[in-house]
Amino acid sequence: MAERLAIRKTYKLYIGGAFPRSESGRSYPVSTPDGDLLAHAARASRKDLRDGVSAARKAVPGWSGATAYNRGQVVYRIAEMLDGRRDQFAAEVAAAEGVHTSAALAQVDAAIDRLVWYAGWADKFAQVVGGTNPVAGPYFNFSIPEPTGVVGVLAPQSSSLLGLVSVFAPVIVTGNATVVVTSQDRPLPAVSLSEVLATSDLPDGVLNILTGITAELAPWLASHKDVNAIDISGAARGLRADLQQAAADNVKRVFLDPDESWEAEPGLRRLTAFVETKTVWHPVGL
């Protein structure tokens, strides 16, 4: 009896909780590092990116207004959902990155653990970086971190899952909504991750995932007036200055950390990168 013929998956975008193809109708071939064709991924256009930004903007009030406890649970839920599909992701990471399945599995596990780590930060972060300020006068004064808003993220090019999770988790756990442009050549684990997100109680639009050509999408993300901050670490070195320049149009916060040692504990840097400190004063008196 003949071997069962495999069903091949269509890899699409993830925008506002839905899975559209690119409105442009374009796709691009994705191969293993050895050159074997894996799939044709959607090649997102400027219009897709703008749809992603507007979905993210719509999601900001609800997500930033959710309790920190709730955000922590949702991010933890992403970890749970991912954990249930370890083998699938190990296979996809192995194919995308050309590593052995055992090494890929270790990355999947690290990605799950990273989500759990960040999930726990949701309701502790403000206590660590905020607090009361002892001003010299009869005033109660406190500072708290608040989400910056819509954050554009250019995901790392090499680490298709662990790197991706490591850059988006701190953005959403602090209450931002985001548009992520995946690794250009290794996008498939990210697309599968969007299926995980869709079943994780994450509100639609909080995390939007676009596959495509980084150098084509990044300038639109950097110059978009309704994007408040951008992580350009995943952009090629030669592209970064242009992106920083475009970001000045609306005084975007620009984050750049070329360090890609994803195995180490990340610290607070990415958590503090996409928050604004708000300070509130009130008189004290009878």
Partner: peptide, 21 residues
């Protein structure tokens, strides 16, 4: 970045100051 409630234009070295957007 700074919200003054029932007061305005107070400044103190211990109090962070700066903007959004």
């Amino acid at each position: 970045g700074v919200v003054w409630a029932n007061t305005f234009n107070r400044f103190d070295p211990a109090s962070p100051f700066g903007g959004y957007k």
